[in-house]
């Protein structure tokens, strides 16, 4: 019972103190789970994180679920996930309900007009990061261009794009093995 409460509280803390998720979350996960609690070794944590990156869903949630399962089985996994999402739920619900009353305030309108511009820059920045990490050879370049073409000209949904990419990646792997 104590371990479940511990799991919840630790994940709650990580959820509360991470701004932005993704890479920003790794140092916090390391500090809490590897250094303070010693539930996992640094190396295992990096493995969990790497698996979290390539399994569906939010990376931080995946990593927390993994640790939770190892410490407390299925219930542990669920509790860790709950702990991780709880701060988001509380804070976003609060902000959203407060903002609702101010959305016609002229200052808020101007501020958000500025903010919407920077969000586009943030998205572009994310694309640059993904480009550097993900597009390294001709194969990945071809997937990138093919995906764009399917999006622009064939009106593919994001779900279809991901499925096509998974399948193509899989077939490419098989083909590479044959060649060896």
């Amino acid at each position: 019972m104590k371990i479940l409460w511990d799991l919840f509280f630790s994940c709650f803390k990580v959820g509360l103190f991470t701004f932005g998720g993704g890479a920003a979350m790794l140092p916090l996960l390391q500090a809490e789970f590897a250094e303070r609690k010693k539930w996992v070794s640094e190396k295992d944590l990096l493995d969990y994180y790497a698996i979290g990156q390539c399994t569906p869903g939010i990376i931080a949630i995946n990593t927390a679920t993994f640790i939770g399962y190892n410490k407390g089985g299925i219930l542990g996994a669920v509790i860790a996930t709950l702990g991780m999402v709880m701060p988001s739920l509380i804070i976003i619900l609060l902000i959203a309900s407060i903002l609702r009353g101010y959305m016609d305030n002229p200052y808020v309108i101007h501020a958000f007009a500025g903010i919407r511009i920077v969000v586009v820059a943030l998205i572009a920045n994310a694309v640059v990061g993904l480009w550097k990490n993900g597009i390294r050879n001709i194969f990945s370049g071809v997937i990138f261009i093919l995906s764009l073409l399917l999006l622009v000209f064939a009106d593919f949904s994001p779900v279809m794009i991901v499925l096509v990419a998974l399948l193509t990646g899989y077939l490419y792997q098989i083909w590479q093995r044959r060649k060896l």
Binding site: V120, A126, V127, N133, I161
Partner: peptide
């Protein structure tokens, strides 16, 4: 290794979404 194909596709997805959203702001 399976992700090999997903990463560039995801980059294209976000680029396209960013392009669509850029037209608003």
């Amino acid at each position: 290794r399976l992700l090999l194909g997903v990463r560039p596709a995801v980059a294209a997805l976000i680029l396209y979404a960013g392009w669509e959203l850029a037209q608003l702001s």
